[in-house]
């Protein structure tokens, strides 16, 4: 049987080394941004990653693209372990993996024409034979993301946030990648524009069969676009499940609190909702709590939770949770 997983991550850890004695920390201290996580993504599916700032969701996205060096673990991408590949060996693989960034203002070179921004990956990977093919590909991409040919002859500053995000998506997709990491792709956009971009990403997936790793803090958007959702807290996966499972039957106390914290745009529903209000804030990843990373804020924490870190285990089918209660 053909392997139906595009991405299989095992025991991945990413650490950031803290330099110098700044703030009194000794040399060589390290911040565990991602702490031994394992997950996999199927061809053509969207895995949403949610969590609050500092939970490691962006680091996870960058690590699977090997835009960061990893401390431990394996990343099997399209059948090949890329965790320890050299830059040179990674280069041809980069065609198959791309990224769309959060900030459509900072991610595009202001001094390049939009057509050259979109076409740059073609040149970098030497995949077109002549300038006619180059132009055709760019026009095709512009069309796919809903921009006109003429718009290619302009500079990024002439575009609105939503249009810039379309440019970023065109650039990411021009090499026909298998995996695209979308890092908060709509959080800088206005509500009415967010829907346009989300719909575009949905359409492109249907049309091109691309796999998304969709990173965002907005659960409503993640729930909308994802097939499966993974919740992270302080560098760990606390829960991962099929989207309706996660939203209708959340198990981890953190997932419950996160869902409850999000207001639903309906006064009738809000009036009858039960709240799980979380106390305190996310601890510093430089000094993570012992045991379960969530226990200091958890209303259901027991002695066990303070001592032993729970592992992620399946509670039913594809629904996995890292909590001593299950």
């Amino acid at each position: 049987m053909k392997n139906n997983k595009i991405l299989n991550v095992k025991n991945l850890s990413v650490e950031y080394k803290m330099r110098g004695k700044l703030f009194g920390r000794s040399e060589g201290a390290s911040l565990k941004a991602v702490n031994g996580i394992s997950f996999s993504v199927k061809h053509g599916e969207t895995l949403g990653i949610v969590g609050e700032s500092g939970c490691g969701k962006t680091t996870t996205g960058l690590a699977v693209l090997r835009m960061l060096d990893i401390a431990k673990g394996s990343i099997e991408f399209d059948g090949e372990d890329i965790a320890n590949l050299s830059r040179k060996r990674l280069r041809p693989l980069r065609q198959k993996m791309q990224i769309v960034y959060q900030d459509p203002f900072g991610a595009l070179n202001p001094r390049m024409l939009v057509r050259d921004i979109i076409g740059e990956p073609l040149k970098a990977h030497n995949v077109v034979s002549d300038s006619i093919e180059y132009k055709e590909k760019i026009y095709e991409m512009l069309d796919i993301v809903g921009l006109s040919k003429q718009m290619g002859e302009r500079y990024p500053h002439e575009f609105s946030g939503g249009q810039r995000q379309r440019i970023g998506i065109a650039r990411a997709l021009i090499l026909n990648p298998k995996l695209v990491v979308c890092d908060e792709p709509v959080s800088a956009l206005d509500v009415s524009i967010q829907a346009q971009i989300i719909n575009l990403l949905d359409e492109l997936q249907e049309r091109l069969g691309v796999t998304y790793l969709f990173i965002a803090h907005d659960l409503a958007i993640v729930q909308h676009i994802s097939h499966r959702v993974m919740v992270m807290y302080l560098g760990n996966i606390v829960e991962i499940a099929e989207r309706s499972q996660l939203y209708n039957n959340p198990k981890h106390p953190y997932t419950k609190a996160l869902l409850s914290a999000i207001p639903v745009p309906s006064p009738d529903i809000e009036a009858n909702r039960e709240f799980v209000m979380l106390e305190g804030e996310v601890p510093s990843p430089l000094d993570p709590p012992k045991g379960c990373p969530f226990h200091p804020r958890c209303s259901e924490a027991r002695v066990d939770c303070r001592e032993n870190k729970p592992v992620l285990k399946n509670s039913e089918g594809s629904h996995a949770v890292a909590c001593h209660l299950y």
């Binding site: 009415s192 829907a195 989300i198 719909n199 409503a220 958007i221 729930q223 939203y247 529903i269």
Partner: peptide
């Protein structure tokens, strides 16, 4: 605007209705 925001409690995945154009 109401139709363009995803609802957390919606049961099935349906297309968002976006507002075309810019303010």
């Amino acid at each position: 605007l109401m139709k363009s925001v995803p609802h957390l409690n919606s049961k099935e995945k349906k297309r968002l209705e976006s507002i075309e154009g810019q303010p």
